[in-house]
């Protein structure tokens, strides 16, 4: 009886550990040894933005702290030069936007839900 209990415990602990390791994405820029993130490379930077043109969080992109900061700076620079938008509304949203110009509460809620879904 006592033997069985001690045998099971370490197995359970191991599986929990491997789950944690699976969740962690490697930083793409560290893997590629990128020296400088080009603000003109909009195709690359768009991968780190949501369809509302918001910068994706580090927990979503899997970037390391340094490279997330570099990506954010590059996106902001690209926005200044009109290479990337400050905001864009998804197509499903646009028809509704014509009738009501102001941002409604449902818009904000939807945005928050989307953010949670990304996590």
């Amino acid at each position: 009886m006592g033997k069985n209990v001690t045998k099971k415990r370490p197995v359970r602990k191991e599986s929990a550990d491997s789950l944690k390791k699976l969740k962690k994405k490697p930083c793409m820029f560290c893997a590629n040894q990128t020296a400088w993130i080009d603000y003109k490379d909009t195709d690359l930077l768009r991968r780190f933005m949501s369809d509302r043109a918001k910068i994706r969080a580090r927990r979503v992109t899997g970037n390391c702290m340094q490279h997330q900061a570099d990506v954010a700076a590059a996106i902001k620079l690209a926005r200044e030069l009109a290479l990337l938008p400050y905001l864009s509304r998804p197509l499903s949203d646009r028809a509704r936007g014509r009738t009501t110009e102001t941002v409604t509460v449902s818009d904000v809620q939807e945005d928050q839900e989307q953010g949670q879904a990304e996590e």
Partner: peptide, 18 residues
Amino acid sequence: LRFKVVRLPEAALAAGKA
């Protein structure tokens, strides 16, 4: 219409990485 002068990292440029 708009302009921006950006400083480039010398090391990256010398190594041909930018």
